[in-house]
Design a binder for these strands. Structure first.
Lengths: 340, 340
DNA sequence: CAGTGATGGACGTTTTATGTCCCGGGTATA
DNA sequence: TATACCCGGGACATAAAACGTCCATCACTG
């Protein structure tokens, strides 16, 4: 039952919207008993004309009937609604989640895929697919796209395909070396994405654990400077979101910094910045690349992360308020909604 | 699984068509490996532009990809096709049945509802619903609609609702008394339909088992004559189809006639006429109303009947060649296809 | 190096969807 | 009983989408 709806969502996304629309109309009429067209239109937030089109359809199919006093549901219509309840619950739980999160955090789009990345590898793949689809949607010709590392980003890279709209775009790592293993780090991801889409890429080769002096020398280097400039003028950022402590451990952050992170209540991590519960930045990794203030100029910031365990972290980053698009999974979405 | 599709069909009648279309495209590309747009369009019998619209859609969703050499399916697309197989099997079975029957007997539309009327009362209801929907589709303002009796017709009447397009239409019994029980006879059905739709009705009160002399007197009666004229000038006929022997028994036809029916190979019955396997009329009930020759002038003849046991009878009536629309169920449809 | 078949862009036309206004008719209320 | 209100449905201009058609350009093959 669930599978069939997931399949339909892939093959007929717009039909599912129509189904939802018609269901809402019918359901509203059922609840109202008898209701007029204009009243219904305003309470469903539709224009009168488009509601009328749907109502005419529903009437033709004998699901509702109307007389001078207004519209009411027929027996077939009532029966249909009853039969549809389980379908709607499954098919549109996610849609509702998406809309709630988008509204709560002022995002322009939220995509929720079913399942839990923590427990199902299939969900992680689906997350990658959805992330790739989201990127495909927002990308334009000649864009510079900054990406971060992580297993989720790697999944997105896997699901990108060659496409004319992305041919010739630049992929760059959002920030320099952040101490991740090679196959998950931003440099790798950027190059894979470029190869998969027929785009180009530039890398930021910045060694980990740099001393202050070496760091200053490095960022003066013209080659590095050129890439950094490209990164900071990117139009699109795609990044993962992690749990602060998990990321600190993975990046082998020293004990002192780790303790300081804990004291400051660091909860989430994204492109080298650590956020507390309120979305404040409490720490940043010492490397070059995208700075938080650059995000303001960035047109599209796409965050991708899933798993129940990451829900709270995602909520923290959202609260910081720089995100435009969120791609997540059902389990994380439910957690996020607990922290509005 | 099956239910969900049936439910969705009510709210999105073209869902199946679009799903079928997109599936066919993807499937064809899968089989072809790499194929060009024009080649594909001609082998799928679509115009190039329409195909292109669908292909663009599928490409955007990452189900297929294209380069200078042509289009080919992606891994997600291949996976989707695999997942869809069971759905398609179910969804297309009925559609194929509908199309096969329509083609075999030259009908303009065939509607097959799932199930078997013989074994499931729910299927019978569904048949009534589908019959009502078909009538709704073909009816126009000011039409005269001739109907017959029977339990299936009663179901149709049950499923009609008030609608402006049928308000003011006339419902008349196709033929006079045919010896059925009161609540199933044509007169009753016509009056119920009129009440349900906001239409008007005229009845044919013709006693059963009329002698020849009384019959002649009766048809001279101006009142009767008026109704008969209306019946014969009807634009739409909706009728059930029955098994000849079952009907003969139900109508308490005398032993001699019954034997004669058997000798003549009577198989099916519709609006008082009995048909043999080849669709020839072998007997007619002695009453007034619609004659076979009137059907030629009738624009829309809708036959409604279901159940495995009636399959052969339906095929006989179809072979007679006056039907335009058939509404039946899956079990009967499968039987019908055995008799092409 | 010409020929074939591919994609993707472009454009005018047709069809469909939408916004908007109005009319006549019930209905509840003053 | 009079009136103000809300109802469905008709009408129409306009915006938007779908469609048919043609063409430029590119990759590959013989």
């Amino acid at each position: 039952m669930r599978e069939i709806l997931d399949i339909q969502k892939k093959l007929l996304p717009d039909l599912m919207d129509i189904m939802k629309k018609r269901y809402s109309i019918l359901h509203h009429i059922l609840i109202s008993g008898v209701v007029g067209r204009r009243t219904l239109a305003s309470s469903l937030d539709m224009t009168e004309r488009v509601l009328r089109g749907e109502v005419d359809f529903l009437k033709e199919h004998g699901l509702l009937e109307s007389d001078a006093s207004g519209m009411k549901i027929t027996e077939s219509g009532r029966q249909l609604l009853e039969d549809m309840l389980p379908i709607i619950k499954i098919a549109f739980g996610l849609t509702d989640l998406e809309e709630s999160i988008a509204k709560a955090y002022g995002l322009s789009q939220v995509i929720v895929v079913p399942g839990d990345t923590d427990t199902s590898v299939f969900t992680k793949k689906e997350l990658g697919r959805a992330g790739a689809a989201a990127l495909r949607k927002y990308v334009a010709k000649g864009d510079i796209i900054a990406v971060t590392g992580g297993s989720t980003m790697a999944q997105i890279a896997n699901n990108l395909t060659i496409s004319s709209s992305m041919k010739g775009n630049w992929f760059v790592p959002a920030r320099g070396g952040l101490g991740e293993s090679v196959d998950m780090q931003a440099n790798t991801i950027a190059s894979i994405m470029a190869k998969k889409t027929g785009g180009k890429y530039r890398l930021l080769h910045v060694p980990d654990h740099l001393g202050e002096e070496a760091y200053q020398t490095l960022i003066q280097d013209p080659q590095i400077q050129e890439v950094v400039d490209a990164v900071r003028s990117c139009r699109i950022v795609v990044h993962g979101i992690g749990d602060a402590m998990v990321m600190a451990r993975r990046r082998k952050v020293d004990a002192e910094t780790t303790r300081s992170l804990q004291d400051d209540g660091a909860l989430a991590e994204a492109f080298g910045y650590y956020f507390d519960r309120q979305g404040n930045v409490v720490h940043k990794m010492p490397t070059v690349g995208l700075r938080l203030e650059d995000l303001q100029r960035t047109e599209v910031v796409i965050g991708v992360a899933g798993g129940k365990s990451k829900g709270e972290a995602i909520a923290s980053v959202l609260r910081h308020g720089q995100e435009d698009v969120l791609v997540t999974d059902e389990a994380a979405a439910l957690e996020i909604m607990k922290h509005v």
